[in-house]
Design a protein around this nucleic acid. Sequence first.
DNA 1: CCGGCGATGGTCT
DNA 2: GACCATCGCCGGC
Length: 181
Amino acid sequence: MTILPQRFYQRNTLLVAQDLLGCFLCRHRPGRRVETYRIVETEGYCGTDDLACHASKGRTPRTEVMFGPAGHAYVYFVYGMHHLLNIVTEGKDYPAAVLIRAIEHERGNGPAKLTKLLAIDRSLNALPVFTKKHGLWIERGELQPGEQIKKSPRVGIDYAGAYKDKPWRFSIAKNEFVSKK
DNA sequence: CCGGCGATGGTCT
DNA sequence: GACCATCGCCGGC
């Protein structure tokens, strides 16, 4: 059990997104056992040029976290009812993040489903995930022999022009917990 | 079985 | 006031 250190996230976003596959998302809520689930699907959002990245709309109170140091949670609220979990990547002032889209649990096969399962909301926004201190962290894991990374376009960003078809969604091929398209 | 759509509120114009 | 990194339900086939 090794917690991924901050420097793990201080790298190219698309590399981080792929390297997170097979790692373990961990949650410790007061009065409960630690919950640990394997990450099977991610997406990369890369800087101000990427029209699908919230930071492309500018530096605002909402997107401020992405402009900060790597290894912190970017949790935002969307569609009036869903929270989505991202981890900030790259260097300070380069706004980028990886969206966690699915984990190995029957109610974890979608970005909003896994935040509901693990009670992740904006109270965790901007907190570091390279320590257990705040009850949310990620531990190192590996792909199993025979497992392969599948690359496909990101979901729900038809508005993103030239960036909408970039194959920046990564999943473990044939894994049953990857979200439905 | 599958596609369309409503729910529901924060964020930015 | 429009848009939105979603989900599950409902109706039609």
